[in-house]
Design a protein around this nucleic acid. Structure first.
Ligand SMILES: [Mn+2]
Ligand SMILES: [Mn+2]
Ligand SMILES: [Zn+2]
Ligand SMILES: [Zn+2]
Lengths: 178, 178
DNA sequence: TGAGATAATGAGAATCGTTATCAATATGGC
DNA sequence: GCCATATTGATAACGATTCTCATTATCTCA
């Protein structure tokens, strides 16, 4: 077995993340990170920000804002949509969440703490989203960009298709169809 | 020199297309293709569809709908936005135009006739859009998808970064900033 | 050529996701 | 607790696109 500190601190792959994350510890880390980020720039804490962060981390995956609003409101019915949108923007700014816009015109957020860059496979049947990393593709992207005089700052790579489950006729849907 | 028929009929690369397309001949081809497509399903053709197709092909590149509307209206001020949207959807359906949604929330269309699949480099400085094809990336995409049980139907690959011109400080803008 | 059937159009209302406005409220340092 | 000010909630506004529906154009066939 490896040294525990090592296991805990290195970046996890998407697959590992999916297996190990239960939301609770991640949420705590995110909250304290948000806390110091806010203090550094003279901003204030709030009850609703805490609720939103905890709920967000509790949901996991690629969370659409309206879904998050619904879940948050089941805990505190007075939280407004505006606050949820504002808070998720904050989380993106301070590196706690990453916004994703797939092809269905709504922004989803996914937890970012301790996770590495990855791209997405999206099932056009059931909406399932699978993450992958491919160093070779990234390398080729940089190469083709440079050959056209570009320096890549970011990229978007989404593969749309049918997952194995859907090709067999089942219609399981764990993530809402995007 | 190669045989002329061969040069004229094979699919052109993005770069060749950019150099050779003047819009006029392409527009004629597109119009007749649209004509038979409409007749095949008992639809009618119309003055405004002709104007829209001609204008669209005259503009070239990656045309935002509002830009197309403006240009069309300079020829016929009565054409409504609804008609332009409807027509562009038609053109997409019959394979004359391809819709593209880059990261600025508006749909652009590009001419599709006789062009091959390609992806895009987008300059975050001036909005310039450069097209590229990379067979190796496509191959790797299929491979990674299959390894996760997916069969790719379509994909989106966009590389965002700064072009050579912009990195040198110029701010030339041939395509509107997306 | 003209009537009838129906597809297409134009104007504007409606939609959707998101952001802006602004008065009311909460927070944090003193 | 007080005050300055950051945050909130309710709702209006927004931009892109689609929908509605009454009017108009196109096509077919006599
Ligand atoms: Mn992800
Ligand atoms: Mn293109
Ligand atoms: Zn599926
Ligand atoms: Zn540029």
């Amino acid at each position: 077995m490896r040294i525990v500190i090592n296991m805990a601190t290195r970046r996890r792959t998407p697959q590992e993340e999916e297996r190990t994350s239960d939301g609770k510890v991640e949420a705590q880390a995110a909250l304290s990170r948000l806390g110091s980020w806010l203090e550094e720039r003279g901003l204030k804490h709030s009850r609703q920000r805490d609720v939103i962060v905890e709920t967000f981390y509790g949901m996991g995956g690629h969370v659409p804002v309206d879904g998050l609003v619904a879940r948050v409101r089941s805990l505190d019915a007075r939280v407004s949509v505006a606050t949820v949108y504002r808070t998720m923007k904050l989380l993106a700014e301070c590196g706690i969440a990453v916004p994703r816009r797939f092809d269905d015109g709504q922004t989803r957020y996914e937890p970012a703490t301790g996770r590495s860059h990855h791209d997405h496979l999206i099932c056009t049947g059931c909406g399932r989203i699978v993450e992958f990393e491919n160093e070779k593709i990234e390398e080729l992207q940089n190469r083709v960009a440079r050959s056209h005089g570009f320096e890549v700052e970011s990229h978007k790579l989404e593969l749309y298709g049918r997952c194995d489950r859907c090709r067999r006729g089942e219609a399981g849907s764990r993530e809402a169809r995007p």
